[in-house]
């Protein structure tokens, strides 16, 4: 039932930490060649070394995908060096929540740049290659998995722009799914609740804000979300897992 990913290439954004890092490790474990993308080169090198130690093949690319030129360059480099692109995991994300009057506009712009523009740029650059990959794929399918959030389903005070970017990701994924599923490119969205990543540390006070809403919660681990990514991608072609919502059992 669940397939191996040998002879396929996966691109993972936001691979320097958290869900992106765990997804890259997990896909490499299933046999995929992984291109890992983030801004922090030192983190990427450390992850690349870990994947190689496990016997995997990896291409680290330090890049800022909020620039469309860099996003295109990343995809071009992958297809020229690795020959193909079968799987795209859009995991790069930024969360800067807080009172809307006090929050600087620059924080909102950065969330729009990373959560939305970066995802759009990479996806647009990848699409022709994903469609090409289907024809020569050992599995006859290509995949895009977008990491949205439960904040892409439910809005909350002081979360307006993060909500807006994640609702946008959920909506774009569904529209792309309808457009490309009959060409064997599956689009899936994962909407995780609280996960132990750097997300809450990206701005002071966010941990306290979460605790005041949900109390003490045993958060999910990045590996838990990576398992959902692997479940989606390793399903046989006929099975499209369009959407998975995961929450900590503790998070009501």
């Amino acid at each position: 039932m669940f397939e191996r990913l040998e002879n396929t290439v996966a691109l993972v954004t936001g691979a320097s930490s958290g869900i992106g890092r765990a997804a890259a490790l997990r896909l490499a474990q299933s046999g995929a060649v992984v291109a890992i993308v983030a801004r922090r080169a030192d983190r990427l090198e450390a992850l690349a070394a870990e994947i190689r130690r496990n016997g995997g093949i990896v291409l680290p690319i330090a890049a800022d995908i909020t620039s469309s030129d860099e996003a295109i360059a990343v995809v071009t480099r992958i297809t020229s060096e690795l020959g193909r692109l079968d799987t795209l995991i859009n995991a790069a994300g930024l969360m800067l929540n807080g009172p809307s009057i006090e929050s600087p506009l620059s924080e909102w712009d950065r969330m729009i740049d990373i959560n939305l523009r970066g995802l759009i740029y990479v996806t647009k650059a990848a699409l022709p290659h994903l469609i090409d990959a289907v024809a020569s794929s050992p599995r006859n399918v290509a995949d895009v998995v977008n990491i949205s959030s439960v904040a892409g389903r439910f809005a909350a005070p002081q979360v307006a722009i993060y909500n807006a970017t994640k609702f946008a990701v959920t909506a774009a994924t569904e529209a792309w799914r309808q457009e490309f599923t009959r060409r064997s490119v599956r689009f899936s969205v994962i909407e995780p609740g609280a996960t132990a990543t750097e997300l809450f540390d990206q701005k002071a006070g966010q941990r306290e804000g979460f605790a005041s809403m949900f109390g003490e919660v045993e958060q999910m681990h990045p590996q838990d979300i990576a398992e959902a990514v692997a479940f989606i991608v390793t399903n046989p072609r006929r099975v499209a897992i369009n959407e998975i919502v995961l929450r900590p059992t503790d998070q009501a």
């Binding site: 958060q219 999910m220 959902a228 499209a240 897992i241 998070q251």
Partner: peptide, 17 residues
């Protein structure tokens, strides 16, 4: 999935649908 993970929703379709 581990006990601390609740998969709340699973939307599964044939690829051609």
């Amino acid at each position: 999935a581990p006990a601390h993970v609740n998969v709340a929703e699973l939307f599964v379709m044939p690829i051609e649908q």
